[in-house]
């Protein structure tokens, strides 16, 4: 019974995420006949999970970039600074790619604003202005601890998004990207857990 309810909720949220309230988009997988095929069609098409995953990732990059730039500049630990700087530049590349896919599919670049729509797959990003402010205001002695605990949670969330995509997405390129998100974030979390406990 619980399983059924869970699935029903997931079903509802998946459907809802595809159609954010107030945003009218053509169903991406059924282009109106006569219009040129979307640029991605030769690479295997996509489904609402692919779109949802990319939108959730897109929403994640902004706050992460702020945390990463702060850490790359302020951490007293060389390893933390170096990891933050490398994550910052690699995620900037990822964001460009994510936005490219969404634009190519004529999909909104951001997820629907209502958090309850996303409760079934990882929730909206847990990092926002409050968390960035907390890091900005952190005293020097607490800085690395605050940064690492915030970013570990943030990267874990990307793993959750990636696993949703790997379970239900269909686009081969996006699936490959999700695999890399899963790998890199898991490795980063491992490194950061070492830093925060050492």
């Amino acid at each position: 019974m619980k399983r059924f309810v869970l699935l029903a909720v997931t079903l509802a949220t998946l459907a809802a995420c595809d159609a954010p309230p107030g945003v009218t988009t053509a169903p991406s997988f059924a282009p109106p006949s006569g219009s040129p095929p979307p640029a991605v069609s030769e690479s295997g098409g996509h489904n609402p999970t692919d779109v949802m995953f990319l939108q959730m990732m897109a929403a994640q990059y902004g706050p992460a970039a702020e945390l990463l730039k702060l850490a790359a500049g302020r951490s007293a630990n060389t390893k933390v600074r170096e990891l933050a700087a490398a994550m910052d530049v690699t995620q900037a590349d990822e964001l460009a790619k994510v936005q490219g896919w969404l634009r190519g599919w004529s999909e909104p670049l951001t997820p629907a604003a209502d958090p309850s729509l996303h409760a079934g797959h990882g929730g909206l990003p847990a990092t926002g202005p409050d968390e960035v402010k907390a890091l900005r205001d952190a005293p020097a002695a607490e800085f690395d601890k605050v940064f690492l605990n915030l970013l570990i949670g943030h990267q874990h969330q990307a793993v959750e998004y990636a696993r949703m995509e790997l379970t239900a997405g269909v686009n081969p390129q996006v699936l490959e990207f999700a695999t890399r998100v899963d790998q890199t974030r898991t490795a980063q979390v491992t490194m950061m857990l070492g830093m925060v406990s050492g």
Partner: peptide
């Protein structure tokens, strides 16, 4: 639009993935 999510759900069920990503939330790091 409805059919596709249903198919996705079926895929989830068939692959035995009943663990929902939303079940993830927190732990002590240090």
């Amino acid at each position: 639009r409805i059919v596709l999510p249903v198919l996705s759900i079926l895929t989830i069920v068939m692959s035995g993935m009943i663990a929902n990503p939303a079940s993830a939330h927190g732990y002590i790091s240090s």
